[in-house]
Design a protein around this nucleic acid. Structure first.
Lengths: 223, 223
DNA sequence: GCGCTTTTGTGCACCCGTTCACAAACACGT
DNA sequence: ACGTGTTTGTGAACGGGTGCACAAAAGCGC
């Protein structure tokens, strides 16, 4: 196991950017590009080139000075680092509009993820076909997680149900949760929880938008 | 204009947490809570209490020492700071699964946002009713933005179309963009761009999940 | 009016992440 | 074989954010 230099030392911020680099690299590979410099890849990823080099250096010295990086090799190394060389089975809990959108989302399968189960608490939804899958009932969550070896849980329920669902996912052994419900979830420290929050993003935009008009008004007054 | 203490000095990280506090506060208000301490609100928001106090102090001294904060007043102040006392008109570009989900999402209207327009490049979609709105054609984007006084653009198109859409939004005067397409967008520096990226979030989870099994394997070897 | 308790607001030290700038390393032409 | 030009990898300075710990302030009971 000497292949891993310092596996545990990669900063979280670098990890969050690796998917970005990977996407840019795959796009380049599709266009037949075989070699790329840190400068080019940085522009394509929208980051600083020094930052990019430092990020890549965390997974090893895979570049050649005076030349750059070999695209295919870098794709492989990043994929391996992110654990995308295997398929991860995902359960989507909550078959509302968003759950349906995710189930139909093509980006899953192409990137190492597979929507293995869809569950909902509403019996009227159970049995429906959504994105090539049949909706199961929430009651069977634990059984489905065990049978399909689910590693990742995605919560697209209303906020009121999200914490209960999270608790059940964790109790059933899921240790990676992606939450779309607009609420704060509490999970044990060994569970990785990430959240995607639409209205928060919009509110941040609204702040900047309002600050703009406020500043404009202030400037008008001071003229 | 002496009401604004230091409008321009609020750190971005604090802004990003204000929506979180606001949600917790509104939930408390609904339950009839009138006063809250920084400790309580911090727990409800999942943050450190000192951080919360520092965040709130950026908008003024709205607390009472020995007592805490008045919920209703804090809701008002945060809403005002975030610019949620007015309604923001939003255009959703791209009526795929995700665009539909957003158009039907109830969380918009309740939080100061209004999906004013839906547009799509596909003529087959135009004229359909989605979430109480009729889909317009992408060709009319500029006219719709002007007529509806659109301030915020949401991009839910395929990645290949996203940059062109962003360019048109910006050219039509939109300066706040929320991008769901899995691609890096380039906009002028005075445009506020935020992104929500599903597959990136999943890939970050996959990294931690894989690291877990790697560590477990390493531990097994060293035993 | 006064001391006691509670809670805010904040100075300070620490840590993580970013960016600059440069030496080491490699390819390539001659 | 050797100099030249290019690009990586990284040391070091910098900046922003976080959390501790405490003084200042407000309410409350007596």
């Amino acid at each position: 196991m000497s292949a891993a230099p310092q596996v545990r030392g990669i900063p979280e911020a670098s990890i969050a950017r690796l998917p970005l680099y990977l996407r840019a690299l795959q796009s380049m590979a599709d266009r037949g590009v075989t070699t790329v410099s840190s400068q080019q890849l940085a522009v394509a990823s929208g980051v600083n080139s020094a930052k990019l080099r430092k990020d890549l250096s965390h997974l090893g010295s895979y570049g050649t000075r005076g030349v750059g990086y070999e695209v295919a090799y870098l794709v492989y190394q990043i994929s391996r680092e992110l654990g995308l060389t295997q398929d991860w089975a995902v359960v989507i809990v909550g078959v509302g509009n968003l759950g349906r959108a995710l189930a139909n989302y093509g980006g899953f399968a192409s990137r190492g993820f597979r929507a293995a189960c869809l569950v909902d608490a509403d019996s009227a939804q159970v049995g429906q076909r959504v994105g090539g899958l049949v909706v199961d009932h929430l009651d069977d969550l634990e059984r489905l997680i065990a049978e399909h070896r689910i590693a990742i849980g995605v919560i697209t329920t209303p906020a009121s149900a999200a914490q209960r669902v999270a608790d059940r996912l964790v109790a059933a052994g899921v240790r990676s949760v992606l939450n779309f419900a607009p609420t704060v979830l509490t999970v044990p420290p060994d569970v990785e929880l990430r959240k995607v929050d639409l209205s928060t993003e919009l509110q941040i935009l609204a702040f900047h938008e309002q600050r703009r008009v406020t500043c404009a008004a202030d400037a008008a007054v001071s003229l």
